[in-house]
Amino acid sequence: MIKLNIPIAPVPASRPRVTRTGHAYDTKQYSQFKRDVKYWVSFNYKDELIEHKPIMIDYTFYRPIQSSVSKKEHDRRKNNEVLPIVKPDLDNYVKAMQDCLTGFVIGDDNMVVDSHARKRYSEEPHIEVEITELGD
């Protein structure tokens, strides 16, 4: 099992923007997130790339608590009494992380045969990832 605790606030995968000439590009925020996560993973994950094996990935995305909420509401969110049912969608967080892990931890995201994901609030936004090999 591989456990990663990435100290970077989650950012959802965005749809590529297209110029009039047909050139597609990612938003600045998403591009920076991918660079930061890949950089962190390249320095903190030294094991072999998982290739040609079915895997299960468990994600927990810890979003920042909005500064506009009251102290009481802030505490409720910090204690997971209130869950983040706001945008961005959970599947966009998953897509972003699978893009970042491909080529660094896993060979290809088509190896993922089972995944679990959740989003929570935290005073320290970060991403927890657990990868389990399921066999040959």
Results as ranks from 00 to 15, higher is better:
His126Asp: 09
Ile50Asn: 06
Ile50Leu: 12
Gly22Leu: 01
Ala13Cys: 04
Lys71Ser: 14
Gln66Thr: 11
Lys3Met: 07
Ser42Glu: 13
Ser42Gln: 10
Tyr121Ile: 06
Ser115Val: 03
Gly22Phe: 00
Pro84Leu: 13
Arg35Asp: 11
Cys100Phe: 00
Met1Ser: 12
Thr102Val: 03
Met56Asp: 13
Ile2Leu: 14
Pro54Phe: 00
Arg15Asp: 10
Asn80Thr: 08
Asp114Phe: 01
Met56Tyr: 11
Arg120Ser: 09
Ile8Ala: 01
Asn92Phe: 03
Thr102Ser: 07
Lys72Thr: 15
Ile131His: 02
Tyr30Ser: 01
Phe43Lys: 14
Pro84Gly: 14
Asn80Ser: 10
His52Tyr: 09
Ser115Leu: 13
Pro12Trp: 00
Arg77Lys: 15
Asp89Gln: 11
Thr19Gln: 03
Ser31Cys: 02
Met111Val: 06
Asp89Thr: 07
Glu81Cys: 06
Arg15His: 02
Ile55Phe: 00
Phe43Asp: 14
Ile106Asp: 08
Ile57Gly: 04
Lys72Val: 14
Asp36Ile: 05
Val69His: 03
Lys72Arg: 15
Asp108Ser: 12
Arg35His: 07
Pro64Asn: 08
Val105Lys: 05
Val82Lys: 15
Ile57Asp: 11
Ile2Val: 14
Ala24His: 02
Glu124Tyr: 08
Tyr45Val: 04
Ala96Arg: 02
Pro10Ala: 05
Glu48Ala: 12
Gln32Gly: 01
Ile131Pro: 08
Tyr25Gly: 00
Val129Ile: 14
Arg15Lys: 14
Lys38Gly: 04
Ser115Phe: 11
Gly135Arg: 04
Val41Trp: 01
Tyr121Met: 07
Glu73Cys: 05
Met56Asn: 15
Phe104Ala: 08
Phe43Pro: 00
Leu101Trp: 02
Val69Phe: 02
Leu90Gln: 09
Ala117Ile: 09
Val112Glu: 12
Asp114Met: 10
Ser42Asp: 15
Thr27Met: 00
Pro16Thr: 09
Glu51Leu: 04
Tyr59Asp: 09
Ile127Cys: 12
Leu90Met: 07
Ala117Thr: 12
Lys38Asp: 07
Cys100Ala: 10
Asp108His: 06
Ile85Met: 13
Asn79Trp: 02
Val94Leu: 05
His126Asn: 09
Lys78Met: 14
Ile2Asn: 12
Ser14Glu: 12
Glu133Ser: 08
Asp75Leu: 13
Asn44Leu: 07
Tyr30Pro: 04
Leu83Met: 15
Leu49Ser: 07
Gln29Leu: 08
Lys95Val: 13
His52Arg: 12
Pro10Lys: 04
Arg76Gly: 03
Asn5Val: 13
Glu124Trp: 01
Phe43Glu: 15
Glu51Ser: 11
Val41Lys: 04
Ile106Gly: 00
Glu123Trp: 04
Glu124Thr: 12
His116Asn: 15
Val105Asn: 08
Ile2Ser: 11
Val86Arg: 10
Ile55Leu: 02
